[in-house]
């Protein structure tokens, strides 16, 4: 009973919001903004899902994720400049960051395993180093990752036109999300990770090398961040300082969605993407602030996020 009241209440809020937005803009630009929001949300989902998986399993809040994203994007630009092969750029961007993640987990984080706060502080230090070295190597001019000819220009559906590339990103997110959910729910690896989230000692006691699972998840999360960098760099221009900006968005996604929850990452990324798109269109001066209000509200009502569990 109580639950249905909540659903009714939130539906009413949603309906009023949509009605108010439609007073401000045409239906056509409304749908454009919805797609803008969801395609930005797609990039956030790549980042937040890796972040949340790492946190759920190892309790490490990897704040270097923003730095991983930025370096991945720059590697994508370099590979595109050398070969012009987009799939190769995406792959190499991901793999390079996966190797960086391997180094981070095995060399930097291993000595302070289990100490939550030092782990977080170390990843912040790493972000500064990565950001500054990227500035030294690739310079400070904003540049996009070059995208293949086939994905350029708009796609015409009836009299509605929308950039092909953003639709491509959206499809990528759906595919990656489906793979993640399938692996998580239906395979042995997913079962290991879920078991590790619940009780690491028990998993280790069953003769499974939990440390290898840790490393695997960390490296995979890093791969997703590099992948997100190359894909996202195609329509969000790559520039210094974006590491912190994208990290902020990813953090708000997991705070709203709930740390350690994959469905929470999907929900949070869509919400944050949509809020950001409409805020930029309607109240550009408050673009960042509009993230703040829902985050504050959710923290007061549900401190562990919409889909999160008690720590």
């Amino acid at each position: 009973m109580k639950r249905s009241w909540w659903i009714a209440g939130w539906s009413a809020v949603l309906a009023v919001t949509v009605w108010w937005i439609l007073q401000q803009m045409s239906l056509r630009s409304f749908w454009t903004q919805v797609l803008n929001g969801l395609s930005f949300g797609a990039v956030l989902f790549f980042l937040a899902s890796g972040f949340t998986l790492i946190f759920g399993l190892m309790r490490i809040s990897n704040l270097a994720h923003g730095g991983f994203y930025l370096v991945g994007a720059y590697i994508g630009i370099t590979v595109m400049g050398l070969t012009g092969n987009f799939p190769l750029a995406v792959l190499l961007g991901g793999v390079a960051i996966a190797l960086l993640g391997l180094f981070t987990e095995r060399v930097l984080l291993r000595p302070i395993r289990g100490m939550e706060k030092p782990e977080v502080l170390l990843t912040i230090g790493l972000t500064f180093v990565l950001g500054d070295l990227s500035l030294a190597i690739w310079g400070g001019d904003p540049t996009p990752v070059p995208i293949p000819e086939a994905l350029k220009g708009p796609l015409q559906i009836g009299n509605f036109a929308y950039p092909r590339y953003r639709l491509f990103v959206l499809i990528c997110a759906v595919v990656v999300g489906a793979i993640l959910f399938f692996v998580d729910r239906r395979t042995r690896i997913g079962a290991l990770v879920r078991a590790g989230v619940d009780d690491q000692e028990m998993v280790a006691g069953l003769g499974i090398n939990i440390k290898a699972v840790f490393t695997g998840v960390f490296v995979f999360g890093a791969f997703l961040a590099g992948f997100a960098g190359v894909i996202g760099g195609g329509f969000l221009t790559v520039l210094p300082g974006q590491d912190f900006e994208i990290l902020l968005f990813a953090l708000v996604v997991v705070i709203i969605g709930g740390l350690g929850s994959l469905p929470g990452a999907v929900l949070g990324a869509s919400l944050v993407g949509l809020i950001d798109a409409f805020a930029k269109a309607l109240v550009p001066e408050l673009a960042f602030f509009t993230l703040f209000a829902p985050m504050a509200l959710i923290l007061v009502v549900r401190p562990h996020g919409l889909m999160g569990r008690e720590a």
Binding site: R59, E116, L248, I255, P284, F288, F289, F292
Partner: peptide
């Protein structure tokens, strides 16, 4: 008010977002 029910890593992440939102306001407003 936002952090009073959090602790540990959660506290760090929320305060990070709070500080950066003030930064966001100051470049946009």
């Amino acid at each position: 008010v936002m952090i009073m029910r959090s602790s540990g890593v959660y506290f760090m992440m929320i305060t990070l977002a709070q500080g950066m939102i003030i930064w966001g306001l100051s470049i946009r407003l």
